[in-house]
Design a protein around this nucleic acid. Structure first.
Lengths: 195, 195
DNA sequence: GTCTATATTTCGATAGAC
DNA sequence: GTCTATCGAAATATAGAC
């Protein structure tokens, strides 16, 4: 049997914590609840993580790494700004499907994380995510395929919020599969930004 | 000098609490912090409100009342679905300008409020807000001015999230005034949903 | 490596003087 | 009506047995 890179306990704790953080918020979730959800007792948590905050940081950091990795894969092959924008939407939604809880934590608790020591560690990743969108939008304007009467940052924020917040209500199922959802989202925004 | 309908202390507490709730979340805000922000000491809070939760309820209830009032004024005169959709966007953004903190609390903490006793009081108002958007969108489809290849609830959620979350980053100023912002938002979504 | 038991801190809320 | 002082509950984190 192959060795695991990470102990099962550690990942179980991260999973359980992410589920609760997403549902109730970081501050409203107690370490005892995390322990219950993970199948251990509260003291055991501190064998794997130095604090509750360290668990949040680990969840968000892993999520951002996965997101940026998908962005790079999605952006490389496509040259057309419209295809690249679609690629970012699909990559974000696929990442939200794999990490639904981390996605929700990221967009719900970013303001809270920002004013805490240790935010520097994830600050760069947050910036890179934003810049990926801005680059595509400005490129589309430069090539004349996106309208230029709306500020790029404005459009970025509109589509970002719409895509990110979908984790609050969208649940993939047979009647409305994720690829259809991604097509609809891109369709509305591409038509909205197009000229 | 005219009598005030509400004591200055009470409104000061509501203002201070809303500011902190919006920035840090309800659960992360302590009653002592609310007292500091409001210029009183913690014991005094309980002369005006029975609990911290009661303060949240009051903030959200007042906000929803103001929002629905604006919706009714905005929807009455316009018959065209496009004009009515624009009216909802403008009404929401104007309300967000007057009550920026309450707007943020509403969209950040609704999940938290939902699972608390006393949610029944605001449940109806939340439903009315949603229904106002759905009605306009379905009306636009029926009249053939909105595209019919995207589910109405899907479109409602896209535009709702984009409009509501603007309070996280949009601050009205001279270089990008609120009416321009409202026109841009409506423009993108109307072009996105149009056919 | 996991648990039991508990130390320590912080929070919401209350009591009572003024 | 406001403040001082504090209670009791709940939370994070630690100590130490096994």
């Amino acid at each position: 049997m192959a060795e695991r890179l990470q102990s099962d306990r550690s990942t179980a704790i991260l999973r359980g914590a992410a589920k609760l953080f997403a549902r109730k918020g970081v501050r409203s979730t107690t370490v005892r609840e995390i322990a219950d959800e993970s199948g251990v007792l509260s003291g055991t948590l501190y064998h794997y993580f130095p604090s509750k905050e360290a668990i949040v940081d680990e969840i968000v950091t892993r999520y951002l790494d996965a997101l940026l990795s998908r962005y790079h894969r999605a952006l490389a092959p496509a040259a057309d700004p419209r295809a690249r924008l679609h690629g970012l939407v699909v990559a974000s939604l696929e990442c939200a499907k794999v990490f639904p809880h981390a996605t929700q934590i990221y967009q719900n608790e970013l303001g809270y994380l920002r004013q805490r020591p240790g935010y520097e560690r994830i600050k760069a990743a947050v910036y890179d995510v934003q810049q990926a969108w801005i680059d595509v939008i400005e490129d589309g304007r430069a090539h004349g395929v996106f309208r230029d009467d709306v500020p790029p940052r404005m459009f970025y924020r509109l589509i970002r919020d719409a895509v990110w917040l979908s984790v609050r209500w969208y649940r993939p199922d047979g009647s409305y599969p994720i690829d259809q959802f991604a097509r609809d989202t891109t369709s509305v925004f591409l038509q909205g930004i197009g000229r």
